[in-house]
Amino acid sequence: MPLLGLTPGVRLVALLASLTVPDRFEATLSPRWRTVLVGCALALLAPVVLLTPDGVPASAGRAALIALIAVQAGAVWWMGERPGVVTAVELVAGAGVQFLAPEIGPGIALVVVSTFAWLRPARESLWGAVAALVLTTVPPWASGHGRGTLLWAAAALLAWSWGALGRSRSARRAAEARRVVLEERARIARELHDILAHTVSVMVVQAAAADDVFDANPARARQALRDLESSGRRALTEVRRFLRTVRALEPEPDADAFAPQPGLADLDVLTRPLAAAGLDVRLHAEGLDDRTLPAGVQLSAYRIVQESLTNVLRHARARTADITLDATGRHLVVEVRDDGGGRPSGAGGGQGIAGMRERAALAGGSLDAGPDPAGGFRVRALLPLEETS
């Protein structure tokens, strides 16, 4: 068991933490486990009926012992719905069993206490440990069998702590699983935002341009509509590619699930429709021909440029945008400047810049965005490069 590998100090810290830290973990007891508990209870308690109870007439004592055993075995079935009530019943019945047959202890009461500590937060189940401590020590003294008192007291505390530690470990595993799910959701949302926001913004500008010249210059309007169709097709292609990438996590992915993600070589295709939308985009690259950049760095740089240009279209009212890529050092420097109005980073109320910062951080880099002292707006990202052998 993993709990056996913990040192006493670590166990103590975990127990104290379980008593002080808010516990929102929801533990449940499946019908299968309840059936197993009932079966184990009957198997463990069945031999007890053959014992002769102490201090009472044999026939009456055996009948009382059988009744208490039946109560303990039957009550376990409702452990999932009423854990507190069942634990109290088990402890009282266990005290009776221990009084009549001290050599076998409180029956399955300590197993139930451990299960109770796993089902409920430590602060709620602590009374079970105290009650078990009292009810496993008083009956032996009352019946004149006090030699095993310390042993049963230690067993009661161990049973509760074992359940509480098991709950703490299950809660950590559930929290970690939830964190992984939330991170994956955030990644999917970020990718979809990067894929769609840019193309949809370009399509809106192209549609507006077609509407402006529809009567005065039908040929130009027709060209804008063709560009609009091409942008829509590119968006569909990127969405399909992304969905195939997601499906690649399945046991049997599609044959083309591992299609390459966009990289720096695709920036020309990305910026070409922007000229028709009225934005002059100039690309400056240095050091890209001398080395092979990791695919993950290229994808991050591509998405940062894509989102930056989307913001230029939506918020800046700019005429030109300059993209600078510099891979001559240990980092890939990605810089996008425009000559617009120097919008604040929160313009539009979206999550674009926050998403770019997250993307840069996931790549081990950083990103700054804000008004450029020389005018306009600037986005600058530093993405670490892995040297290729």
Rank of each mutant, 00 (worst) to 15 (best):
G96C: 02
L110F: 12
G296H: 06
S230F: 03
T149D: 11
A275N: 03
R226H: 05
A276K: 00
S231R: 07
R178E: 09
D339H: 00
A381N: 03
V10P: 00
P262H: 12
R34Q: 08
T237L: 09
V134H: 04
A60R: 12
P251K: 05
D254A: 14
A321R: 06
I353N: 02
L182T: 14
V111K: 06
T7E: 13
T115C: 11
R247V: 13
W160V: 08
L119I: 03
A257L: 09
A95K: 06
P371E: 07
G80Q: 03
L91R: 08
A75G: 13
R32F: 08
L51A: 11
S114E: 08
A131S: 11
V200S: 08
L37Y: 10
P273A: 14
P83T: 10
V71H: 02
L270G: 10
A132L: 00
T7H: 09
A129E: 08
Q351K: 09
D54F: 11
M1V: 13
P102H: 09
G365C: 09
S59C: 03
A208M: 05
Q306G: 11
T35S: 10
G349Y: 09
A109D: 02
R303T: 00
A93R: 00
R303M: 07
V180H: 14
A64C: 01
L3A: 00
W33P: 07
D212E: 15
T28I: 08
A95E: 05
L293S: 07
G144L: 14
L126K: 05
L288W: 11
G375D: 05
A265E: 15
D23F: 04
V21A: 14
T52G: 08
L382T: 00
E184N: 15
A175V: 05
F99D: 02
D326N: 14
A117G: 09
R233P: 01
G128R: 08
G9E: 15
A321T: 13
V134D: 03
V239R: 12
S125M: 01
G61D: 10
G9T: 15
P344N: 12
P2E: 14
L325K: 01
P251F: 02
Q298P: 00
A122M: 01
A316D: 13
E250I: 03
R147I: 13
P31R: 01
R357P: 07
A295Q: 14
I69H: 06
L16C: 13
R169P: 01
R241V: 02
G287L: 07
V204T: 09
I108Q: 03
A301T: 02
L12I: 07
L157G: 14
L15R: 04
L29A: 00
